[in-house]
Amino acid sequence: MVTKPNEAVRLLNFNSSVNSKIVKTKNHHTFLLRCRDDNTVPNGLKRRSPIHTDNPFIFKILHQASSRILKVQVQQLRRKKASLENYEVQQPPAADKPIGKTIRHETYTKKTVINLSSKQLTTAQTSLLCKGLKFVPTCSNIKTDEYIIGIESGLQQLAPNGNIDYLRHQIADLIKQSPKQRSNLSPQERKAINELRNDKNITITEADKGKAAVIMDTPDFHDLVNKTLSDTSTYKILPKDPTAKLERQHKKTLKTLHDSNQINCV
């Protein structure tokens, strides 16, 4: 039996709505887990004293109450996430396999992932891309030496009196004492990162509107870029990089405004 077009559209909209709720719930759950691990309470969950007081004992009680509310909220979101995932699985479209595949595929891709390539994305790859191109995976092991080397250039400004070694050791101790971060990706999603990174046949970019992840075949992407740049009414070839000239003009303009007291040094 083939599902009627209206029924297919209804199921697609339903599954898309459920998938959107799952993504939002996962993001909210991940955020609250980080707050819990860092012993930080979001402003929306903080309990405040109804009267003005500086009593530290009262602040301690309020913080403990806020922390308990945070833990309860984490548990509720975990149950909600599991319920939504199970609910989506229990709502298969009553259609033949081709229509079912299309509906399930568009369930994931609508609004968050748009696959225009010939590559069939796996569930883990789609789940990873649904998190957005600005999503930052947590690092399980912090490389202390590399971190210190990265801030070495700023140590002189942070320690003007010459106590660079002391500050370096303080930073290293803070890193070592910091709690181990909880992974915000599943093992399959971490594997999907390498799979997508090493696949040179596709190009992943961000949509102009909606911040969706767009997957295209690399040749098609290059053709699109070349076609866009060939529009002489919008773009033109420059004989050289104008950045240095623009910087000089910018500095000259700022100096003129400063000398005429139209701007200050703040």
Score class of each variant (00 low, 15 high):
23 V>A: 08
143 K>M: 04
120 Q>R: 07
33 L>W: 06
130 C>R: 15
22 I>M: 08
46 K>S: 00
63 H>Y: 14
72 V>M: 11
246 L>D: 00
194 N>C: 06
65 A>V: 09
123 T>S: 09
16 S>G: 13
24 K>D: 12
183 S>E: 10
142 I>Y: 06
218 T>F: 08
115 N>G: 00
4 K>W: 06
37 D>R: 15
127 S>Y: 04
93 P>K: 12
177 Q>L: 15
188 Q>N: 08
17 S>V: 08
219 P>Y: 05
42 P>R: 05
93 P>Q: 11
174 L>V: 09
102 T>R: 13
170 Q>M: 11
43 N>S: 13
104 R>M: 14
137 P>I: 04
41 V>P: 00
18 V>L: 15
61 I>G: 01
260 S>H: 14
239 P>N: 02
71 K>H: 09
194 N>F: 10
48 R>N: 05
31 F>K: 14
137 P>S: 03
4 K>I: 07
7 E>Y: 05
76 Q>V: 15
111 K>Y: 01
163 N>S: 05
166 Y>I: 09
208 D>T: 12
124 A>W: 04
63 H>S: 10
112 T>H: 02
233 S>I: 06
74 V>H: 05
26 K>A: 08
157 Q>D: 13
34 R>A: 01
47 R>T: 12
165 D>I: 13
151 I>H: 11
192 A>W: 04
99 I>F: 09
4 K>G: 03
190 R>P: 01
55 N>G: 03
218 T>C: 03
235 Y>W: 00
163 N>F: 06
144 T>G: 05
